[in-house]
Simulated assay, not measured.
Amino acid sequence: MRHRPSSSAGSAARFTAAYDAAYADVLRYVQRRVLTGAEDVVAETMTVAWRRVADLPESLDDARAWMFGIAHHCLLNHHRTHRRQEALGVRIAIVASGAGDEPDGADLAVSRLDLARAWALLDPDDQEVIALTALDGLTFEHAGRVLDISATA
């Protein structure tokens, strides 16, 4: 079936807007989950998204979550293909709210160690939900869509 130029141009514009809104966040999402090849996984994600542009949600927030879902599935494929399991890395960014609030080196090291231990005790599915909501800024509803679960789960 041949697309009309206006619908093709409209699809391209919608995809470009969604790509611009999601690319950097999707790349960070993938980089936290693989040691190498993050750019390849994101390229695959965007290729799949372009092929499925007819399914692209109208809302930019929904389109962003949709792309995270595609990236999630591309990551699963990446892990299956390379037969390795990657540990989810946690990056902690501390923004001091004012002078005197910044922890010293020892306190910071203890906090990071405590967080790393707590993180390791979590089920990988729970890690994924926390990462999508706290680190990637998705709503519970959007995170649920990415993981194919309900927002309350």
Rank of each mutant, 00 (worst) to 15 (best):
V42G: 03
D40P: 00
A63R: 04
L27H: 06
A13D: 10
A21L: 10
P57W: 15
A54V: 15
A24M: 14
R28T: 15
A21S: 03
A63M: 05
A13F: 07
V41L: 04
E39G: 05
R33G: 02
R64A: 08
T47P: 03
C74S: 09
A24V: 15
V41A: 02
W50N: 04
T47M: 09
C74T: 14
A13N: 07
H72W: 05
V26I: 14
T16I: 13
W66N: 00
D55T: 12
E44G: 01
E39W: 04
S59F: 09
G37I: 00
I70R: 03
A71T: 08
A65S: 09
A49T: 12
T45E: 05
A71G: 11
Y29V: 07
I70T: 09
Q31G: 00
H73P: 10
V53E: 08
H73F: 07
W50L: 04
F68Y: 12
A65V: 15
A65H: 08
E39I: 12
A49K: 01
G69H: 07
I70H: 04
V41W: 02
A18N: 09
R32S: 14
V34W: 03
Y19H: 09
P57G: 13
L27P: 04
A71F: 02
A63L: 08
W50T: 11
R28E: 11
R51G: 10
Y19N: 02
A22G: 08
T36Y: 06
H73W: 13
Q31D: 08
A54Y: 12
E58G: 01
A71H: 06
A21P: 14
R14K: 12
H73Q: 13
L27W: 05
A71S: 04
R33D: 06
W66P: 07
A22C: 04
A38G: 06
T16P: 00
A22W: 08
L60M: 11
F15S: 09
T16Q: 10
Y19A: 00
Q31M: 06
T36K: 11
T16N: 10
A54W: 13
T45D: 01
L76W: 14
R52E: 15
G37L: 01
R64Q: 11
L56K: 01
Q31I: 05
R52C: 15
A13Y: 09
R52S: 10
L27Y: 11
H72C: 11
E39Y: 03
V30E: 03
Q31Y: 01
L76A: 12
D61F: 12
I70N: 00
V26W: 05
Y19Q: 08
T45P: 03
A54C: 07
H73A: 07
D25M: 08
L56Y: 05
F68T: 10
I70E: 02
Y29M: 03
A63Y: 13
L75N: 04
D20E: 11
C74Y: 03
